[in-house]
Measured scan of single mutants.
Amino acid sequence: THFTSQQLQELEATFQRNHYPDMSTREEIAVWTNLTEARVRVWFKNRRAKWR
Rank of each mutant, 00 (worst) to 15 (best):
P21A: 06
P21D: 02
T33A: 07
L35E: 03
W43Y: 02
W51T: 06
E37Y: 03
Q9L: 12
A30R: 02
L35W: 06
R17S: 09
S5Y: 13
V31W: 08
T33I: 12
V31A: 14
E27T: 12
W43K: 02
F44I: 01
T36R: 03
W51F: 09
E10P: 02
K45L: 08
V31S: 14
R26I: 13
M23E: 09
T33S: 06
T1S: 09
L8M: 07
F3E: 03
I29A: 01
P21F: 03
R26A: 03
N46H: 13
M23N: 06
T4Q: 03
W32L: 15
I29Q: 01
K45C: 11
T1W: 13
T4N: 08
Q16G: 07
I29E: 01
T36F: 03
T33E: 02
Y20H: 06
Q16S: 11
L11I: 02
F3L: 15
V40A: 00
F15H: 01
R17C: 11
A49R: 15
R39Q: 15
R39I: 15
R52H: 13
R41G: 05
R52V: 10
Y20L: 03
N34I: 05
Q7G: 02
A13H: 09
F44Y: 06
R47I: 03
T36P: 07
R26M: 10
H2F: 12
T14P: 01
T4E: 04
T14I: 15
R26Q: 03
V42A: 14
K45E: 07
A30N: 01
N46F: 11
N34S: 10
E12L: 03
F15C: 04
R41M: 05
R47T: 03
A13L: 09
S24Q: 14
R52C: 08
A49Q: 09
M23H: 13
V31Q: 13
Q16F: 07
T1F: 14
F15E: 01
R52M: 12
T14F: 15
T36W: 03
V31Y: 14
D22L: 04
E27Y: 11
R39M: 14
Q9P: 02
A49Y: 08
H19T: 02
S5Q: 12
K50E: 15
A38G: 08
I29S: 00
V40L: 04
A38N: 09
E27H: 13
S24P: 11
S24D: 09
M23Y: 13
N46K: 14
T36G: 04
R48F: 04
A49W: 07
S24T: 11
A13R: 14
A30F: 04
T4F: 04
R47G: 02
T1K: 14
E10Q: 15
H19W: 05
V42D: 11
E12V: 03
V40Q: 00
K45R: 12
D22G: 06
K50Y: 08
F15W: 07
L8N: 06
K45P: 00
Q6M: 10
Q16P: 03
H2W: 12
Q16N: 08
F44S: 00
V40T: 01
E10D: 12
N18P: 00
N34R: 07
R48L: 07
W32V: 14
E37W: 04
I29M: 03
R41H: 08
R47S: 02
V42P: 00
T4R: 03
Y20F: 11
T14Y: 15
R52Y: 15
E27L: 15
R17V: 11
P21E: 02
S5V: 14
T4D: 05
E27F: 14
W43F: 02
R17L: 12
N18G: 05
H2G: 13
V42Y: 10
R26C: 05
W43L: 00
T1G: 13
L11E: 01
R48T: 03
R48I: 06
W32R: 15
T25N: 05
L35R: 03
F3P: 05
W32N: 15
H19P: 10
L8D: 05
F3T: 03
R41V: 04
T25S: 08
L8C: 07
E37G: 03
Q7E: 04
V40S: 00
E27R: 13
N18E: 06
A30E: 03
K45F: 08
L35T: 13
P21M: 04
L11K: 01
W32I: 15
N34G: 15
R17T: 10
N46T: 09
V40P: 00
M23G: 06
E28P: 00
W43D: 00
H2V: 11
